[in-house]
Amino acid sequence: MSAEESDNFAIDVRSLNKHFGDKHVVNNVSLQVRRGEIFGFLGPNGSGKTTSIRLMCGLLTPDSGSGTCLGYDIHTESDKIKREVGYMTQKFSYWDDLTIRENLDFVARMYGMPNRRVAVEKTLEDLGLTTRANQLTGTLSGGWKQRLALAACMLHQPRLLLLDEPTAGVDPTARRDFWEELHRLAAQGISVLVSTHYMDEAERCHKLAYIAYGKLLAQGYAADIVAEQGLHTWTIHGEHLTELSDQLRCAPGVDQTVAFGAALHVSGRDATQLEKSVHEIAAARGLRVEPSSTGLEDVFIYIMSRSQDNIGATH
């Protein structure tokens, strides 16, 4: 790969591996994030998302594998990476017993910012927290803490943001505002790698990667990931869907059923068999059936269950 090409990537890592004891937490992960891109990182709890993020910014040393972050080697130049990366931890990790201003000031000092006071005041103003700057950070609500954390890790004007489940436990309005902010930052050329459990957030990312059991199972544009699996989906509307779902799973052509409130998504790879089974069973109960497009969630559940089967088979 030429230097010019690698310059286009904010993150470019190859075959990363990490073990904790005898657990293979990150298994051969390769990942590329372009500059100015919002890259969504999805996967179940304990799948290795946090560890992967830490590997990419030099907080952890991989057992094997290589790569660059912002053009710096992740093995040898973690100091330089730290300077230009904003890392927002999964758990709020600013000091509860410092005031908002003190926290921001501390961060600014850590990065040795030349005009510290100005930067801190500007951030406070942007956040709308100028009047509450002397309030203890521990007294902020979850949504405010999250906004503060983002502002704090943006303070030193990083070129790459690594956000580890930034919106966990945050209300929908605050989440929407947060994502609008992310898109504004991306438009300015800042690259963002964000891990999340929310499908609506996944759909707002430019690109996605899905990781489970430490393995990267899918990577690319959302539409491509969906198309790749070749799933067809029907939606059945009605009540008492649990029983129906059990019956459908045994039917030919049905690979998966997912309940969404009063609707059931039925997916399968074999379009004709699926259509036949769905119509037969729904007609027998007099339920309404309609074709629908396969969503990201359907696909991820499908990928997940299939990889589980694979792991079950290898053991």
């Binding site: 100091d79 890392y87 931890t89 758990k91 600013y94 000091w95």
Partner: peptide, 13 residues
């Protein structure tokens, strides 16, 4: 315990 160590580690200190 409070998780702030992780934050410190991520800073260039």
């Amino acid at each position: 315990e409070r998780g702030t160590m992780e934050n410190l580690l991520a800073m260039p200190v």
